[in-house]
Design a binder for these strands. Structure first.
Lengths: 106, 106
DNA sequence: AAGTTAGGTGACCATTTGGTCACATGTCAA
DNA sequence: TTGACATGTGACCAAATGGTCACCTAACTT
């Protein structure tokens, strides 16, 4: 399996995206802490975190018997750069910002 | 299924990513033209394009009996914005640019 | 040392997914 | 209008995926 295949497969599952959301809010959490936020057993959560780790979306640091998880944004940026060139980026960003501004007005 | 689920599921398959690559190179192609680039039957390619269309990653315009396909970069930008805030974006872009520059030097 | 806490492994099963095929519709060209 | 061309549908099958469990190792606590 190629690197980018691992990244996209990892992102394809809602539980794994939720884990990334949690780490985006606050980094450096343990498996047990993350697991408590998911509606599944520890084994399921561990499996998902392993997939994210293999994809490079999450990096880990061991501290005693704990495993701390951190979000790595680089693969996400590479997805962006694959289909949005510098020229298009300006237009798309403007469009998205406008959409957000309109939604905030409500 | 939620909108973002459709997008990520659509991106999870290498053939579909290849189709996006093709449309990134040149927009407005027909099913038959795209199908000739894939190592599968027309039915497989059509199924993949349908998935991309349902996800909003590809928009289509009918012209007679032909169906023209165009790449829509907005969902890609939204993925980016989900896990990369404005502050982090500067660091990550710098990092990625540096990496690209180093690779070009070789 | 003994109990508790954090995490890992491999097997297993239900469901989803990628790809093909037989068949069908609508559009263009001679 | 007849035939070729572009695309659509639903059934089908093999393979991959998400989740659980029984069982295991390593580290902290008292």
């Amino acid at each position: 399996m190629t690197d980018d295949d691992r990244v996209f497969k990892a992102l394809a599952d809602p539980s794994r995206r939720f884990l990334l959301d949690l780490l985006f809010q606050r980094d450096g959490r343990t498996l047990t802490e993350l697991e408590s936020e998911l509606a599944m057993t520890r084994f399921g959560a561990a499996k998902h975190l392993r997939v994210l780790e293999d994809a490079g979306l999450v990096v880990v640091r061991r501290s005693g018997r704990e495993k701390l998880h951190f979000l790595n944004p680089v693969p996400i940026r590479l997805i962006h750069d694959r289909w949005i060139d510098k020229f298009t980026e300006r237009q798309v960003t403007a469009l998205v910002d406008l959409k957000n501004a309109l939604e905030d007005e409500e």
